[in-house]
């Protein structure tokens, strides 16, 4: 299945945000649930091997968008048993304009046994754009060894690279390395950007890293911080990321 969903905001009357484009492409279905708030609803199983899915997000200057999902995404192997598993892919591209803000915090991606998945995220931010982008990956359902997954995350602010990260999951020799994931079964990160002291949800912490049990707030070389966390299970991962997010955005 090949699908490309599109979501774009525009400035509305009275400084409000309107959704100028909201084009669902099953299995990615978009539902507006409030002003500037959209839920991603999966209207089919998967992604399955062979699926090529994309979501394009354009947050116009001065507007605000909040994207969530109703349930976690379960990545499954392709529908052809016996043959070599085909790769599935999910590509998200987001442009966040000057003075715009985007909160993207869907439920986790769970890698079922036998899957072969590729996740690509490309963010292009204006220098004063405010972003909170959370990503959570769970290595298999309960008691299950994960399939293979490669992720690539690129965030560029005003044409300069802010954060580039790749994760590879599914190679037992690397997954269990104490340098990579150790004994964790979930990995996640939240990128938070924005000019210090102006974010509506608190002011972005600048300066030193903050560390907790299995999480850290890492100030990046550019204008932003990464909350990074490892955990034994999905609920623990969310707790650790939220702790880090709170530490990064003190009220």
């Amino acid at each position: 299945m090949t699908a490309r969903a599109v979501l774009a905001t525009a400035p509305g009357p009275g400084g409000r945000t309107v959704l100028a484009t909201m084009r669902s492409a099953p299995p990615i279905t978009l539902r507006r649930t409030g002003p500037g708030q959209v839920y991603l609803v999966a209207t089919a199983a998967g992604p399955l091997g062979g699926d090529d899915l994309a979501l394009d997000i354009d947050v116009a200057p001065g507007t605000a968008l909040d994207v969530r999902s109703v349930a976690s995404t379960l990545v499954l192997p392709g529908p052809r048993p016996g043959s070599a598993p085909e790769e599935s892919s999910m590509t998200i591209t987001a442009r966040i304009g000057a003075g715009a803000s985007l909160r993207f915090a869907p439920e986790p991606t769970v890698l079922a046994a036998g899957c072969r998945h590729r996740m690509t995220v490309r963010l292009e931010l204006a220098p004063d754009a405010r972003v909170l982008w959370r990503e959570e990956i769970v290595f298999g359902r309960y008691g299950e060894a994960p399939g293979r997954c490669r992720t690539r995350f690129d965030a560029v602010v005003g044409g300069r690279p802010l954060l580039r990260q790749e994760f590879t999951v599914g190679d037992p020799a690397i997954d269990a390395s104490p340098a990579v994931y150790g004994d964790a079964r979930c990995v996640g990160g939240t990128l938070i950007t924005g000019p210090p002291g102006t974010a509506g949800s608190g002011s972005l912490l600048a300066g030193e890293a903050v560390i907790g049990d299995g999480w850290a707030v890492l100030p990046l070389a550019g204008p932003g911080v990464l909350v990074s966390a490892l955990a034994p299970d999905a609920a623990g991962l969310r707790r650790r990321l939220e702790r880090g997010e709170t530490a990064a955005l003190p009220r």
């Binding site: 990260q165 790749e166 994760f167 990579v180 994931y181 299995g214 990074s228």
Partner: peptide
């Protein structure tokens, strides 16, 4: 850009 989250946490 392969990253190692455990190394990041250990370094801090």
């Amino acid at each position: 850009a392969h990253s190692a989250p455990a190394l990041d946490l250990l370094a801090e």
